[in-house]
Design a protein around this nucleic acid. Sequence first.
RNA 1: GGAGGGAUGGGAGAGCGGCUAAAUCCAUCAGACUGUAAAUCUGACGCCCUCAGGGCUACGCAGGUUCGAAUCCUGCUCCCUCCA
Length: 428
Amino acid sequence: MPTLDQQTIDRITKRGVAQIIPEDEFIRRLQEGRPLRLKMGFDPSRPDLHLGHVVGLRKLRQLQDLGHELILIVGDWTAQIGDPSGASETRTMLSAEDVRENAETYMRQFFKVMDPNRTRAVYQSEWFGKFTLSDVIRLTSHFTVNQFLHRDDFAQRYAGQRPIAVTEMLYPLLQAYDSVAIEADVEFGGTDQLFNLLVGRELQEKVGQRPQLVFTMPILPGTDGVRKMSKSLDNYIAIEDTPRDMFGKIMSLPDDLIPVYFELLTDVPDDELDAIRAAMGPTSPSANPASSVIPAKAGISSLNPMDLKKRLGEELTAVFHSPGAATAAREEFERVFQRRETPEDIPEVAVGPTSPAVVSRDADGFDADLSHLLPALNLAASRSEARRLLQQNAVQIDGERPDGERVRVPYGALVRVGSRRFARVVRG
RNA sequence: GGAGGGAUGGGAGAGCGGCUAAAUCCAUCAGACUGUAAAUCUGACGCCCUCAGGGCUACGCAGGUUCGAAUCCUGCUCCCUCCA
């Protein structure tokens, strides 16, 4: 294993890190030069990875690249408990096939960031499958309810007289036992995982193992700019989003998220990061419309929010798809949104003579009832919505805005609703 | 075992007999503007129709009271809190 220079240590322990417990020991063990056994768990009931997960994966990848080994825990038992970190929602049991399928989906995404050669996936059922009630009692006996009630999330719910399921108390315990089972050296998680990770550390110590180090990573804000990125809040950018969606969602981020995203999701050097922060800071043009013209100093001219977002979008899209796809997505974006031109791939929809959208037709086109045509083209969910869109002047046919519901539509016409919904009408 | 609280539109959350297709906020969509699908402002936001109007469905489920119910009553189902 390579010896570590200070720069590498800083990169590992400073950037994109919330807390390392204890930090000095972590650095010492990194320098020992022996492979560490890194642990990270995942919930197989939600196999969709998004950029919020990538923050942690990138950190793990850095460590893999230094020769450390990751053990990925497939949480097929904890998944049955539900998400203890907030929204209480009863979860149905997953079948073994579901778990396996979800795990495969997960890994497919996972290995876009991680190194498969230094990753080993294990299922919790390897040890919990054999668990007996007395094992459970022994496990629970190490901790007190009072201790668990101090967990931030539980404390808040208890104070607010909101429910805390008994099984949720089991969640940290199971997760902790995973650390014992695999003899983890370091466990990783978001800052909201701190309590669970520490329980693992404590349990290992109680059963006579060397206690794991705990490594927490900052939570990435979602596309709304406020709440953490999560699927249930629908403010996420999925790893498997199409290049176009991924790029587009990044372009729609609030400007003040730009520095965080660069910091946590890219390798831009720290000094460049500082420049970005300075440009986006409270006195930046984005926050002060009066000075929205950026000084045309060479090298700094690229530091306006839109260009930064394009760069961010292109870099990230390239990671999860390909550089070519990323460039194409950027060009598409520029064409459709900046120059208001038409996109490359427009779905063609055949409209036949019996369609209610067709009032009468001839060889070149037809007289259309737009309230029927838009739903038929998948440009509106219902006739009511179609009418609303028409009233709002959102509809264009070959660039013309119709003034009524009845209008002549030639075959091959491009129908556009708003700025991003398109369809081409073909004879059917 | 006992006492109490609740179930409303994609989410949160008002309403507590007619003025309620249901306040407000968020999300969403559109228009304007722009540096972008940012920000801001404006508007829309159940479905259907021969559409400046009309109709149908909707406030956990099933009944009931009433000219009229999301709102009152009864029974169910589900959820939550507290006491023991």
